[in-house]
Design a protein around this nucleic acid. Structure first.
Length: 492
RNA sequence: GGUUCCGUGGCCGAGCGGCUAGGCACUGGUCUGCAAAACCAGCUACAGCGGUUCGAAUCCGCUCGGAACCUCCA
């Protein structure tokens, strides 16, 4: 029996702005689509937060026993700065600046993105489709939309007729906008524009002579509109209707709004059951953004090679830091907050390690494992509330740290505790042991030898020598800890 | 200007009508040769003003402060 049958899951649906009970369309299968990056430059930490959030969602759904098909696209066709702009798209511009082919740009930053995602211990999506790999499908969808009467062709470009769509549907329902307000907020339609209405958006754009990325189509040599790829690829791999669509908050309008319209206009159904939006990561109270330079790159975080941080932090520590906040809340990134998270992370992981050494004996403790376990699932079931989950994990930490080797749990409960804690720490939150790999057996032997020498010195009351061993180890980052069961050590 | 959202103890961050998360820091204690670690205890807050209610951090109104979106953005 799958866990999801025992534990309810509620998701805050951005579309309805309500927490709704999650019911998979075709359990145990779940389809999830997440908008991926445009690969024209290095991803920054803000981008990473969204993908780490949905990695956690993916992990928890899988943990519950769902078979998730997780689709996350790579946008490798350049978007114009806006529809009226006849200039270069971002990928072409970057290609010119770096004197590379557009596909070289795409390749370079896609690889970089994957490297960063791996460092953060995210699981690769089941399918990672690219926009340029689905031009044919995009042309098909444009034809459907035209045939259904929701788009018009003008001088080789195809525009989505927002006003007409809105008369029969509700354009703006996701972002809470009214079409009248949008119109009044838009500048006058300039004379050159081919659009009938300033709100209309291009789903196919005729290429200007300088445009590098271009494809043949029934309308012109050109390129697809930037909202189209997600509608096309989600439909292709997840069907006309699927369970979850995720992305960053900043994509709500216009990107996701247009996606909803395109799906409805081509297939006649609302594609997405549950819309989820991750909130922004801020730096000094302002959202990270490439254009303003208010960013922190993953590499800078890991190395500490930036004036914004006092030192480097392990990717898993940054992940833990993010998990301590709810995905739907804004989170501010700071050195101070990261330091606090790092200490908390260390305490958690040391307790997880100590748990392995505990042994069952009877049942004489207040710690109620089955109930604690239930609390963990309740927290996650409440819209993936990882901060509450973590607070429960620390209840277990307190028990473990306070426990004798014979810990007072029945063998059944001890196993349950181990399985549950490991599952949430590693499988669901996706944390890792930091510094794993740089701790060799030889190092362990050397430190163990030094500990033995120090113990002999202590037995002889040679405090000078024992303190020298301890302090000099501390300087190179090895902490000795004298406990009831002898001395152990930990690495910085 | 329009639309959304937020303002919680020294810091980060949950909670969203009653039972006052958690982490970090700090203080006292236990343990220890001393220290560190660990454990126990303490520090008990909800921007301001008014209202609704038996009861509000949580609902409503106003004021002040901050953020996101309205253009490409995770």
């Amino acid at each position: 029996m799958a866990l999801y049958e025992d534990y309810d899951l509620y998701i805050n649906n951005s579309l309805t702005r309500k927490k709704e009970k999650f019911e998979a369309l075709k359990a145990p299968n779940v389809g999830m689509y997440v908008c991926g990056p445009t690969v024209y430059s290095d991803v920054h930490l803000g981008n990473c937060r969204t993908f780490i959030t949905f990695d956690m969602v993916y992990r928890y759904l899988s943990h519950l026993g769902y078979k998730v098909r997780y689709v996350r696209n790579i946008t490798d066709a350049g978007h114009l700065e806006n529809d009226a702009d006849e200039g270069e798209d971002k990928i072409s511009k970057k290609a010119r600046l770096e004197a590379l082919e557009p596909m070289e740009i795409v390749q370079k930053y896609t690889l970089g993105f994957h490297e960063v995602m791996a460092k953060f211990n995210t699981i690769p999506p089941s399918i990672e489709p690219t926009a340029t790999g689905h031009i044919v499908e995009q042309i098909d969808m444009i034809e459907q939309i035209i045939n259904n009467g929701w788009a018009y062709v003008e001088n080789g470009s195809v525009y989505f007729d927002v006003e007409k769509y809105n008369a029969a549907n509700d354009y703006g329902k996701l972002s809470g906008r009214k079409i009248e307000e949008l119109i009044s907020g838009t500048r006058e339609l300039d004379a050159q524009s081919e659009k009938r209405n300033p709100l209309d958006f291009a789903i196919w754009k005729k290429a200007s002579p300088s445009h590098i990325q271009r494809w043949n189509s029934p309308w012109s040599v050109g390129f697809p509109g930037w909202h189209l790829e997600c509608s096309v690829m989600s439909t292709k791999y997840l069907g006309e209707q699927f369970d979850i669509h995720g992305g960053g908050m900043d994509l709500k309008f216009p990107h996701h709004e247009c996606e909803i319209a395109q799906n409805k206009a081509s297939n006649g159904v609302d594609a997405v059951r549950y819309w989820m939006h991750g909130n922004m990561l801020t730096l000094n109270g302002q959202r990270m953004s490439k254009s303003t330079g208010n960013t922190l790159l993953p590499g800078e975080l890991f190395s500490g090679d930036t004036d914004k941080l006092s030192k480097g932090y392990a990717p898993t520590v940054a992940r833990f830091f993010m998990m301590q906040a709810h995905y739907g809340s804004q989170l501010d990134f700071s050195d101070e907050a990261l330091q606090a998270a790092e200490k908390g992370y260390n305490r958690l992981m040391q307790a997880v390690a100590k748990l392995d050494t505990l042994e069952a004996n009877g049942a004489n403790t207040d710690f109620d494992v089955p109930n604690w376990r239930k609390d963990c699932y309740t927290a996650m079931g409440d819209d993936f509330n990882t901060p509450i989950l973590i607070s429960h994990l620390f209840e277990a930490v307190r028990f473990i740290n306070g426990a004798e080797k014979a810990c007072g749990l029945s063998s059944e409960n001890l196993v349950l505790l181990k399985n549950t804690l490991n599952a949430f720490v590693y499988d669901v939150l996706g944390l890792e042991k930091a510094g794993e790999g740089n701790q060799s057996d030889k190092l362990d032997e050397v430190v163990t030898m030094l500990i033995e020498m120090r113990n002999k010195a202590r037995a002889d009351k040679d405090w000078a020598l024992s303190d020298q061993i301890r302090d000099e180890l501390a300087t190179i980052g090895i902490q000795l800890k004298d406990g009831a069961d002898g001395t152990s050590y930990s690495l910085d």
